[in-house]
């Protein structure tokens, strides 16, 4: 009797393990399938209800966390303020120069959205992946609202990510920090091109990879979407969406690894309201 039980247990375990491997093999690399879309459609209203109901509790926990962080951050901000003052003066000079260059080159670089066919659609984040390797959030708008896969997603601070899959009333956003994320970008004002990729596990650090090692990038420079297309890597974003600021750019790393580090403008750990840029010409 006992042996029979043990055999049955082992059979169930083997079946579950094989089932997991089979599912993994069949679905890896696909954006979504009918089964996932069905489950997601059923659960997205429930997720919306949970999201609304639990917001006060989330805010309370965030308040505690921010209070702890603020104590340590105060001193750092004092030093940063002094540095920012100096940079602001330098920035004013750079702006004047920039305006002159624009006139000279007749290069129209207005606000990124004004010159593109995209329209912003406001959405609320209703859930987030608990797995460190998958930096994704679910939002409460979907194909019924005109959202499509690859649509850019922004917050008030800058680029957040792109739509990785979409259902009727919900969509998944692959954040900049997701292991599979890669966004073509350029450094202002020189225009050094590269691909922004995540540093998995550190939501405040991104890597601008594959930059031209003969050109120099320095700390404090702004990184924006480049909006170009190539055979292998294509930017689905309008040109000029702010991504982040270069925080570390050692010369040896630029020469050896062709990369610099940047901090995203958007707070990717605390997203509540975002905008999907829909209707782009693709």
């Amino acid at each position: 009797m006992y042996r029979k039980q043990v055999r049955r247990r082992r059979a169930v375990l083997a079946l579950l393990v094989l089932g997991s491997f089979a599912l993994l093999t069949l679905t890896y690399g696909q954006s979504s399938n009918g089964f996932q879309r069905g489950v997601s459609t059923i659960f997205s209203p429930l997720q919306t209800v949970f999201d609304r109901a639990l917001k006060p509790a989330r805010d309370l926990v965030d308040w505690f966390d921010e209070t702890f962080e603020a104590r340590g951050e105060n001193e750092r901000l004092q030093a940063q303020l002094q540095e920012e003052r100096e940079m602001a003066i330098a920035g004013q000079v750079a702006l004047q120069e920039n305006a002159q260059f624009r006139k000279l080159l007749e290069f129209d670089r207005g606000p990124a959205l004004a010159s593109s066919a995209f329209e912003p659609l406001t959405a609320r984040v209703i859930s987030r992946s608990p797995i460190i390797w998958h930096s994704t959030v679910t939002i409460d708008v979907g194909s019924d609202d005109g959202v499509r896969v690859e649509d850019p997603v922004i917050s008030g601070d800058g680029l957040v990510g792109r739509i990785s899959s979409v259902e009727g009333g919900a969509a998944q956003v692959m954040l900049l920090t997701d292991a599979d994320s890669g966004i073509s970008a350029k450094v202002l004002p020189e225009g050094v091109q590269g691909v922004v990729r995540p540093e998995i596990g550190d939501p405040e650090d991104l890597v601008l990879d594959f930059i031209d090692s003969t050109k120099r990038v320095s700390r404090g420079q702004e990184v924006v979407t480049s909006g170009w297309r190539a055979e292998v890597v294509a930017s689905q974003f309008p040109q000029g969406l702010p991504i982040g600021e270069v925080t570390r750019a050692p010369v040896e790393e630029q020469e050896a690894s062709q990369q610099v580090h940047l901090r995203p403008y958007a707070d990717l750990r605390d997203l509540d309201l975002v905008q999907v840029l829909i209707g782009g010409s693709r």
Partner: peptide, 28 residues
């Protein structure tokens, strides 16, 4: 052990479905 394994499999499958990740990874 069987309850744990079966519950883990289905909870993982539901998570992968809702997050639209490759099915089976969380289950495993």
């Amino acid at each position: 052990s069987m309850t744990g394994a079966v519950a883990g499999f289905w909870i993982g499958l539901l998570v992968d479905c809702l997050l639209v990740e490759a099915l089976g990874a969380s289950s495993l």
